[in-house]
Amino acid sequence: MTTLLHLDASVRGERSLSRKLSKAFVQAWLAGDAHAQIIERDVGRNPPPFIDEAWIAAAFTAAEKRSPAQHEALRISDALIGEVERADVIVLGTPMYNYGMPAALKAWFDQIIRVNQTFTFDLARGDFPLQPTMADKTLVILTSRGEFGFAPGGVREHMNHLETHIQTCAHYLGVARSHVIAIDYQEFGDTRHQESIVAAFERVPVLAAQLIDQQGMPMCASA
């Protein structure tokens, strides 16, 4: 059975296009794999706390030596890591804010990328001492962007610090494959924006079906 971790990072509610995209992806997955398990995590509406000095001290203290206060400081981190560990596919709906991640999404990554939990550190590995502890996960980024040209080769590729940052961090969550479906031109609100919406939603069920097939799950007759 495949487990999807469905994350939303937009601070908007029903107006959010990234939320609509991620919801459509999960629905398309369930249409093809009715037995999939879905873990819901809404960091846009319920952001995790920022890490602080107490969190760092607890994270770098061996588990058996932590005080009750230190265990409490890592309680949310432990829960979020557990969700990622259970997931085969991470479905991330996120807008682009100021060319990068929403603060709540960055806080989520900071809570999860944790030494001796999601990665190990060993100087015997030379110049690449960090190594993720999880592997073989798939990431689907479903996003909406105010401008356009952020894809490879686009006029704003150099300004895209959303997908590149997510993919860099996701390596330490065991992500081996990533896919992006994006809506562009949101601030323009013209026909190009409408065409981009249509194109993105058309791609969603196609990608879901492809990934279900790669996961080796049988397609439902209604899919």
Rank of each mutant, 00 (worst) to 15 (best):
D33Q: 11
D213R: 14
G93V: 12
Y172R: 05
L92C: 09
D110W: 04
A58M: 06
D33F: 02
A151T: 12
G93L: 09
A9Q: 06
A200W: 04
G126H: 12
H165I: 12
A170W: 01
A9N: 05
I38T: 02
L21D: 11
F121S: 11
R12D: 05
A200V: 06
A79P: 03
I113C: 11
A176L: 01
R66Q: 13
Q131E: 13
P95H: 11
L162F: 03
R45D: 07
Q37Y: 02
Q215N: 13
G82W: 01
R15D: 14
C220T: 14
M217T: 12
A221Q: 13
I141W: 04
A221E: 15
G44L: 02
L173Q: 00
V180N: 12
V140C: 09
W108Q: 02
D88E: 13
L17G: 09
R86Y: 00
W29N: 05
A34P: 02
I76F: 00
A58S: 05
Q117D: 02
F148R: 07
P205Q: 09
D122A: 05
Q167S: 11
D127E: 15
A124T: 15
M159F: 12
I166V: 15
S22Y: 10
G216C: 12
Q70G: 02
L80T: 00
G13N: 10
T191Q: 13
I38A: 01
Q186V: 15
V155E: 14
V115L: 10
P49K: 01
D42G: 07
R192E: 06
C169P: 00
L173I: 01
H193T: 01
W55H: 03
K23W: 06
F25M: 10
A57Y: 05
G13P: 07
D33S: 14
G100R: 07
V204E: 11
P152R: 04
P47A: 07
H158F: 12
A223E: 09
I56M: 13
T94S: 15
K20V: 04
L74Y: 03
T133G: 00
Q117M: 05
P102G: 07
